[in-house]
Design a protein around this nucleic acid. Structure first.
Lengths: 176, 176
DNA sequence: GTCTATAATTTGATAGAC
DNA sequence: GTCTATCAAATTATAGAC
């Protein structure tokens, strides 16, 4: 049941941010009562932090490890970009931590901490990928640029309802 | 009074998004009652749309016109980047339309329309600037990349509480 | 673990006096 | 244009039965 709650919360947060889900809306979605949701996650901040953590783990697990990707003759950066594009096209949703990141100043501290962890862990992943690809020099700066372009491109593409905007935004990543 | 209300709303939205302001919180901030706020802006969607419009106009007015900037030997792209950095450092706040953009799927349509207009008008401004700078070719793609990097860089810099992250993110704009 | 019931608060919105 | 008063709904959260 925990996982069903987290999945429901993820869906809602990715549509409208931290205020887009309530204990009642989640209860309805998974077919229990709101007090039962409280049983699993006592406060909204608990649930918000759990879903941010859940999303981060799922996202990074799905990506795989840069070292192994390269061993299998795959370009980790391309894989990474495709993961974001899939979120936008297949899920028709934004990046959960992009949404929470935008409103971080208004979030309970537990949720903010997990949101921050998403960005730190993703920068680390990308820094490793760039280091393996073309050396340690500027690897972290490249990681930051890539993630910023993806987050910003995702938002703009969604706002303008035009997937081509995402493609144009990330075009440059090839030159980073 | 309209303007005081808009300024108060702007401050709150830029801190936590569309749900970060209420008629009561704004009333308190400007020293009137919530029913008086309703007198100026009947619904929350009205006020949300008005503040998005107000912010967009103010932001673009402050920038000036690309043609004139170039005539005065100024680099419009540098001016544009600096405007975002000022918002982050001086105001210690995010871009209002970046926040609303992230949660656009959950916004009332009137607010979504004005948020979209911010991005369209800014892309137009940047496209003009890039066209004047180095020709029509790819000017719009460059505009989209620049705005995406700035929005994404702003979010990441705020999440990680590190202005250097913003600087590293936008470093690449020089090569666009 | 899930339920009913309910408390306490906040919110968007309106009616009507001044 | 601002106020008091109030409504209806939604929200987070808890107590206690099963």
């Amino acid at each position: 049941m925990e996982q069903e709650i987290l999945e429901a919360a993820e869906k809602m947060v990715r549509e409208g941010g931290y205020n887009a889900f309530s204990f009642r809306s989640i209860a309805k979605e998974v077919g229990i009562k709101s007090s039962s949701v409280h049983y699993h996650f006592p406060t909204k901040a608990d649930l918000g932090a759990a879903v941010a953590r859940y999303y981060t783990d799922k996202f990074l697990n799905h990506l795989g490890i840069p070292e192994e990707l390269i061993q299998n003759k795959k370009d980790p950066i391309k894989i990474y970009i495709q993961a974001f594009k899939n979120a936008l096209i297949k899920d028709k949703r934004m990046c959960l931590c992009g949404m929470l990141g935008a409103e971080i100043d208004g979030l309970p501290s537990e949720v903010a901490v997990e949101t921050k962890a998403f960005f730190e862990r993703n920068i680390e992943w990308l820094t490793t990928a760039y280091t393996l690809k073309d050396g340690k020099k500027n690897a972290r700066a490249k990681a930051i640029q890539t993630l910023a372009l993806l987050q910003g491109g995702m938002i703009m593409s969604n706002v303008l309802s035009d997937i081509k905007v995402f493609d144009e935004a990330v075009l440059y990543i090839g030159n980073i």
